[in-house]
Design a protein around this nucleic acid. Structure first.
Lengths: 350, 350
DNA sequence: GGCTCCCGGTGTAACGATGCACTGACCATA
DNA sequence: TATGGTCAGTGCATCGTTACACCGGGAGCC
């Protein structure tokens, strides 16, 4: 226990607690340089660290931001958590971790709890398409960043969305597959109810249309109702496997399959192999996100990278930075995705 | 902002703040049932939630535990973070997330910071073999759980270690490989400097000795000095690939390779494939940990499962529960590992 | 009647940091 | 010598909760 208070510092430096506090909070305008130095060195000597609880009690603003994700067990959210924490650390902020397990009630409860604990900045990775239920909190001064989501028409004012440009990313992948000579390309996704899935699908269609390819096979899968698998991941992969198996067994199967994310793509790869074919040679498979697994998988997965580190940093800035002008409605910070070509896609064999 | 204080409740219920506080803290001994019910219903009605900052300021004990991991981007630590948070939630605790990035200085700084923020319970996933540097903090009443580590001779008093029984796990895998008819089995690991690697190695040797197999090939790899890869993961896999490539190209190559963890095993699988062989048929490959990838990888990886959920719950109990008798030295909570046989291991072909 | 005991609470001083409103000293001007 | 104006810092109420020390009153006992 540190146990050293601002009073200890004040006494040791021969000033009042107010002066120490003023220094700590940058109010150094009217302060003799020598006083300032004396206090500063006293702080160092004693190893004084301000008590966050007391500070929060007084100011109402804790040096903590909340992060609500479906599950940090999922590598995608794990990566976000890692980079967000790193960004927060640079400003002396800590990150409180909350796993919603994709349960909307739990997600809402977490947000309420964080708010009533005085936390003023939350990064929310919601599984809900609408975020209306938080608009009241936003009016009360909460800073909310919705991650992996783009602005919607009915978004509450003040909400900042941070996301990769899904449409552009999917378009890049579409172009890539087309350039490899593929003409029969399937888009494989779970139920397209979330915003970013819709965007990915539309970007993909754009690329194909430009190449003069008719509307491709689109396979969506309802997904199991209710609770998803342990991480939601395993289920995504299973979905890819089941759907791709059916697709490949059908008439006129595609030569390439673009899965809505890497997990699903991994399931697709398994299905391809189960069907006695080789990924990359017989069928090209592509994913989206570029999670760690994509690089490690076999074959290494062609995918679309999200610049996680930059996105996390931007999310933190949006929470912490100065209020950016008038709170506008429908703010989206869109990041440029990057096509990462690896071994799971190849030129179509004639 | 909730904004409702204990005073509001007290006034509305016609009692003093002390009574409300007493109820909140379970001191209901001398309290009329009717008073109690009145206060309780008032709390509900008003939606009162105690202010954590004030509570902490007063008691010195925040309802927060710290979690220091190398990186939550790594699925293994991500899983721990997820389950630990779930366990903490059941008691109303929150989890503060810290990524040490395997930097000992940063790890130490995080612990100091958490402690001086008043946090009294920390789960530390250290990359350091010795934890002497925290013994001072333990004397001051900090509860510290070292995760994925077993007790050492020079451990500070009061430290609780939580880990899977690595020796037993490796022994199970050794037996499994032997039972499949393998006789030339390699153990593949990065530098065996950490405690659990040593234990895995010894357990593995035990199984082989019992089967009358001479000391097997053991391949360890120094690993790059300095910073590891983005997650430490990618490097582990790379290590497996490089080492296995060399091993398979040598004279009298093993028919089975037991990698020290799943990430390394994945790298081994790649090497096997690169050498024109098939995992499971030509060479058996086994890992340890049973991270999500193990199930998803192709082939599905035979590995040793750590009961993460139970381990996380135990770690939390060790932090939060009552002081267990006299603080002893060398406390280890060891969990039973489970052999998970999948597709990457098979009977040796004659 | 006087005494103690217990019941069912209540009063209030902290916990540590903050920041507004203030002050004493000094200088310049009228 | 008043008057005003900086300058450099200080005094103190305050945030919401806790828990120790207290208190009024009724019961029981001699």
């Amino acid at each position: 226990m540190a146990g050293i208070t601002i009073l200890d510092v004040a006494r040791a430096a021969g000033v009042s607690t107010s002066t120490v506090s003023n220094l700590l909070n940058g109010r150094t305008g009217r302060m003799l340089p020598e006083t300032r130095e004396r206090v500063e060195s006293t702080i160092k000597e004693l190893g004084y660290r301000p008590n966050r609880a007391a500070r929060q009690l007084r100011t109402g603003k804790p040096q903590v931001i909340g992060l609500v994700v479906p599950s940090v067990g999922n590598p995608y959210w794990g990566a976000l958590a890692r980079y967000l924490e790193a960004a927060a650390l640079t400003e002396g902020y800590h990150v409180l971790l909350c796993n919603s397990e994709r349960d909307p009630a739990r997600e809402r409860q977490y947000v309420d709890e964080l708010v009533s604990d005085g936390i003023r900045g939350i990064v929310l990775c919601s599984s809900l398409p609408s975020l209306e239920h938080v608009s009241g909190l936003l009016d009360d001064g909460l800073r909310l960043v919705a991650f992996d989501r783009t602005a919607q028409a009915d978004d509450p004012v003040g909400l900042v969305n941070v996301s990769v440009d899904n449409a552009v990313g999917a378009e890049l992948m579409g172009e890539h597959l087309v350039s490899l000579g593929h003409r029969r390309i399937a888009f494989l996704s779970g139920a397209i109810r979330s915003v970013n899935r819709t965007e990915r699908f539309e970007g993909f269609l754009r690329a194909l249309e430009r190449a003069g390819i008719a509307r491709p096979d689109v396979v969506t899968w309802p997904g199991s109702s209710g609770a998803e698998g342990a991480f939601g991941d395993v289920e995504a992969a299973e979905l890819g496997r089941v759907a791709a198996t059916e697709l490949l067994a059908g008439p006129n199967p595609p030569t390439a399959i673009f899965a809505v994310n890497d997990m699903t793509a991994i399931g697709v790869c398994r299905a391809v192999r189960d069907a006695g074919m080789e990924v990359g040679r017989d069928v090209s498979v592509a994913g989206f996100d570029d999670i760690v697994l994509a690089e490690l998988y076999s074959p290494r997965l062609t995918t679309v990278r999200q610049p996680m580190k930059e996105m996390a940093a931007a999310a933190f800035r949006a929470l912490h930075g100065p209020d950016e002008g008038p709170a506008s409605q429908g703010t989206s910070l869109l990041f440029r995705p990057e096509l990462v070509v690896r071994d799971s896609t190849a030129a179509v064999v004639a």
